[in-house]
Amino acid sequence: MSQQLIQSDVALSAEETRQIDAELAHMPQKSGAAIDALKIVQRHRGWVSDESLIAIARYLEMSPETLEGVATFYNLIYRKPVGKKVVLFCDSVSCWICGCDGVKQKITEKLGVDYGETTADNQYTLIPVPCLGACDKAPVMMVGDDLHTHLDNEKIDQIFAGKLSDGEGS
């Protein structure tokens, strides 16, 4: 963790603290809400910056180092900025058998990004995700909150052309 973040602090918004408090009500210890708090702040701010992390740690009475250790452990806590929507692309076994490698290549061509990268217009960040529990409809991915199934090149064109509104593709 870098030096300067020890000083800076971006206070949690009223809405963020309200949502974190709701989680705290279900936990006998404040640190129990660490992951919830990280996810709440991420939902509001898109990602978890060093400043956000410090603010959360302070609120939960944890050391920033401990919270950083928690944040970096989990795949879905973003410690770098991401695009407006995250594309969670399943690259696990059933999707692989059903040809997800080809679909991934198509996405990379279409959006011009590889895993971990964000499109130039800041719309999408592409991230691999383990099995999404929809293996009978492989290959699959999530774009934002929506699951898209039975992916092929044509579907990728539709989904990212904005011709299909999200969700209809599944």
Partner: peptide, 11 residues
């Protein structure tokens, strides 16, 4: 948690 690859029953 259902993250075992190839598992889609609990969902």
């Amino acid at each position: 948690d259902e993250m075992e690859p190839g598992t889609f029953k609990d969902r």
